[in-house]
Design a protein around this nucleic acid. Structure first.
Lengths: 243, 243
DNA sequence: CGCACCTTTGAATGAGATCAAAGATGGTGG
DNA sequence: CCACCATCTTTGATCTCATTCAAAGGTGCG
């Protein structure tokens, strides 16, 4: 745990060299704790830093002219937050702490050093960015072309799958620190309708709830309803050799 | 034009070195023509190559279990198609030629060489991948949280903006080789409702149509309705020096 | 010329939004 | 430790935007 969260994440895909581990560790020299609700990056402002998530939940969202909000993605341990800073001067999205979080801030130039010194890490970053794009595409298909129930199922599947990989979902149960309003903003639904869909899932014996604890009873059905595809495995065979 | 389309694209953001230009040119040594409707990459199959678009329109889409289709993105000259191949063995999406297209195929390992030899190009690829993610996020917000009319406006804005940069939109007019069904699949609407929304835009004197030609009469209003943000400029100041 | 595909329009239907109000929950300060 | 207040969840009733179903024009290609 003293090690780098990002290295931990990437170790799922490749065996990192010593030099690579050192380079990644240099991104997590600092540490910052923020409380629930804190805004990490504001839409349309120029952030100074990117962050690696050490613990807690965050989300990135956009607020539209009509006042409604779309949550793009939730971020967990090992995720990089603020990637748009690598392509745009001003952040297109707001990043908010959903729970208390621990973040490791670093500046872009530090990432440039890593890329220049370690081509395989550059390739891994490209793969991560591409995977993020694919994940958003899955969400897009869900919101664009499926029923309210399937959208909620899909979100739960995605979160459950990601938490499982992180070892944060024990026997189908995990903490879901989201309000129904937040789930609605992520799925393009109203909080009221999210409530009805969650109830339907509970009544259908597909999930169980108590407080913020959620338990998946019938994973197969949940995933099938949601049209869910697992994308946990990253392809690394094409990447340049480690340095 | 004999040069690399990708280099042409990247030249909008940075001044490429000779070595970088040569590396990029190596990705476009071959050339392939496909006719309208041809499938370039199939969902759930393992493609052998990525492609750089030289001319024509394509789209990437997903077909869901209920038979409906979601179009994720349209691809124009200079776009890289098949990027998911860098993260996944099997393609999560189908890529289809919307018009006759000319594509330059290349294998992933060739890209690995480019990354290893040219860190700034690696950084640019990361930025492009991130920009693609942001663009999908914009679409997601549009579909998740805005009216049918705003969704259509948003798509037209995005296409118009991208074609303008490519010099393919002359005085507000451009070819739009899409059926209303395709526009519906991109915006999460039915073809019938797309028709009504397009009609409303025409009646409102915001656009004009004849055959496949579309002319934007009131760009300001179109963009405002759509909540559109232009993201043409890429941030490059942080990137490692060219090699 | 004829067929396939696309566009256009109308009418009926329905999924999800909106409005409203009653419980539940939890954090805070007295 | 409890009371209070803010926030969140739950449920019902009604409304609306987009879908669905149906059918009549267009258009272009073989």
């Amino acid at each position: 745990m003293g090690g780098s969260c990002l290295a931990e994440r990437l170790s799922h895909y490749v065996r990192l060299s010593g030099g690579e581990q050192a380079a990644l560790a240099s991104l997590e020299e600092q540490d910052r704790i923020l409380r629930r609700g804190a805004i990490v990056i504001s839409e349309n402002e120029a952030p100074r830093e990117l962050y690696i998530v050490r613990s807690g939940w965050l989300h990135s969202s956009v607020v539209l002219g009509n006042g409604s909000r779309q949550i793009m993605r939730f971020h967990f341990r090992g995720d990089i937050v603020g990637l748009p800073l690598l392509a745009f001067a001003e952040s297109p999205e707001t990043v908010t702490a959903v729970t208390e979080v621990a973040l490791c801030p670093f500046v872009r130039e530090r990432l440039a050093d890593v890329i220049a010194g370690h081509p395989r890490l550059a390739a891994l970053l490209i793969a991560l960015a591409v995977a993020g794009r694919v994940s958003l595409a899955d969400r897009l298909a869900s919101i664009g072309r499926t029923s309210a129930r399937a959208r909620v199922s899909s979100l739960l599947c995605e979160i459950y799958g990601r938490l499982k990989v992180l070892g944060l979902a024990d026997g189908g149960a995990f903490q879901l620190p989201l309000t129904q309003e937040e789930i609605g903003d992520a799925t393009g639904l109203t909080a009221v309708h999210v409530n009805r869909m969650m109830r339907a899932l509970v009544d259908g014996r597909i999930i169980e709830r108590q407080a913020n604890q959620l338990r998946v009873l019938d994973e197969a059905r949940l995933c099938a309803d949601a049209n869910f595809s697992d994308r946990a495995v990253l392809e690394t065979s094409w990447m340049p050799p480690p340095r």
